[in-house]
Write a protein that binds this DNA or RNA. Structure first.
Lengths: 344, 344
DNA sequence: TTGAAAGCGCTAACAG
DNA sequence: CTGTTAGCGCTTTCAA
């Protein structure tokens, strides 16, 4: 048996409506767009025709004429990071409400992939884009972002003068985390985070140094590992760190996808938390909450960030195309749970 | 200082290319579309003009003329469920590779929302859609799905004759889970899952009964709770179940987002796993793996499912518009870890 | 207030 | 092989 998938039914166009209502297309279009200058009688006839034919304007044709698609692109590192999904969801809710559809793409943190995505989004004429970038420094990406020529909101990337941005206070968050550990007596505190071509990594390293400096202590640079936000990296670096001598007494997972890897490595080395090793994660999660002991984390509200990012974008698209770039900051707090104790 | 966001630069069109190359638009179009019948000299001139002007065809206009957008919609219950994100990512990889962009929408399991999403996707002229539906029975949704008139692949929804589908063997998975528990000596096994208007819930309940029936035992219907796949539901029902008398000795979280809730409730009731309560989850996760003890789960490969779903869709869009619906099944395995023991 | 007509940028059918 | 032309469905002048 054959099925009927594939829309063979001819579309109903504005012409059908016009002829059914006995008016010109122009009039139908005016009714569609809420143009005041349409007589009541005609308006009613047109509206009835629309209803009876179940007519829906062709968004493509509208976009083409109007020069706006009412679609925005969302480019993130990876959909697989739960908390980023939360960010996307929150943004999407706002965008949907404002009448925008969301085109989604994951860059996997790879510059080539990001380059390609930007090109696709631009050719598909997004009205705007919310994005993180794989690197803030890469000249190709820089050029591509500027060439976008469309409103953009950067997620957690520093770009002082060009785009709107939402920024999380990683520096302060990590500073508090390190201070917490220093207070407990730790002196060998490791920080695992991403490449220093991205703001979150840079800020975390800064926060780390802030805390040490405030205590007048000099940290051992071997305890700072900046290379990737990937989930595996947490595992690899924790293993490496715990193998070196002296090994750290505390590890901070400075990336939202890193905690599982760090925990896995701790388990692989049969380390008890917090007796043998104190651990602090970045961003809260079911995992952090449900572990025994529950994991102390640097936490922020990614859904709120998503909401604000979307609001900034919609605002710029619809009202403030030429306003100066706005940067909205979000605090990061230390949620103290059971995964940190004094070193032995 | 004002910024330059907003693309004021006039677009380069096929006309510019044509005049720069000294040919007609038709020729440029032919070069663009790889039409063989273009002389080498002109082709080269056109290609150079395209390169020099950095011309990119307007996707909107192309879509309009060709009647295809090369965009597919992906509608899922919730982006916030990590494993669904994995599904989306895998699907997206395939789609991207095939030249399709992905428009994403989350229904939150609410029929009204789903209805609206379908309408949006249809008006935006997706070439196809991959979706789960909030309810297989709801007549409105049924109608809307049929009215879609576009290729669709259903995710884990039973729709015998109308659409392509990818289906997970929840029935067998749960059957194995229940058998495992029965083997351990459990007789009061609870199953928490979603509304029985969706296939995963129906199949899980069936699998549950399969296992009991095979042993010639009659289960207590009070131990089956079918109402929602929501994350909270796991918590609420576990609490309720553990408060009733007799309480179950084992609980199966029959939904991919439910395990955290069940674990949380177990903790709230100070129940030790598996001593006081055996637990089995659905779908593997970091959480399941990292708990102490690690949680036994019914597991399947959602990324593979996503990949196949996308392949089915692309195949149907591009080659097999009128082929009979295909249903691809995926096995669900029981991964035995430490969260189940004999009841006391 | 309304209708007619000119495109938006592109593809494809039709001539030559 | 190449140019010309007629639209795709809609919005928006420009006249009436």
């Amino acid at each position: 048996m054959k099925n009927r998938q594939g829309g063979s039914t001819a579309r109903i166009t504005i012409k059908h409506v016009a002829s059914k209502a006995g008016v010109s297309l122009g009039t139908v279009s005016r009714v569609l767009n809420g143009n005041k200058s349409v007589g009541d009688e005609l308006r009613i006839r047109v509206e009835r025709a629309i209803r009876e034919l179940e007519y829906h304007p062709d968004v493509l044709a509208q976009s083409m004429r109007r020069g706006a698609t009412r679609v925005v692109g969302v480019v993130i590192r990876s959909l697989m990071v739960p908390v980023l999904a939360g960010f996307v969801k929150a943004a999407q809710d706002v965008l949907h409400e404002a009448g925008y559809a969301v085109m989604l793409a994951g860059s996997e943190g790879r510059p080539e992939r990001e380059l390609e995505i930007l090109s696709v989004l631009s050719r598909r004429r997004m009205d705007g884009v919310i994005m993180t970038t794989a690197s803030e420094a890469d000249p190709m990406l820089l050029r591509a972002r500027q060439a976008l020529q469309m409103p953009a909101v950067l997620l957690d990337r520093h770009n002082p003068t060009e785009f709107d941005a939402v920024l999380v206070a990683h520096r302060e968050g990590i500073r508090r985390a390190v201070e917490h550990l220093l207070d407990l007596g730790h002196r060998r505190i490791a920080l695992i985070t991403g490449e220093e071509t991205t703001r979150p990594a840079v800020e975390r390293v800064r926060g780390y140094h802030d805390a040490y400096r405030a205590r007048g202590i000099t940290p051992d640079p071997r305890f700072i590992r900046t290379q990737s936000f990937g989930a595996d990296f947490g595992f690899v670096e924790t293993s490496s760190l715990m193998g070196q001598n002296p090994a750290p007494t505390a590890i901070i997972a400075g990336g939202i996808a890193m905690l599982p890897g760090v925990l896995r490595a701790a388990r692989a080395h049969s380390l008890r938390v917090p007796d043998d090793l104190s651990i602090i994660g970045s961003c809260d999660s079911d995992l952090a909450q449900m572990m025994t002991p529950p994991i102390t984390v640097v936490q922020w509200d990614y859904e709120k960030v998503g909401k604000v990012a979307a609001e900034l974008l919609v605002g710029r698209i619809e009202r403030e195309r030429d306003a100066a770039p706005r940067h909205v900051r979000f605090p990061a707090e230390l949620v103290i749970r059971g995964s940190c104790a004094a070193p032995r």
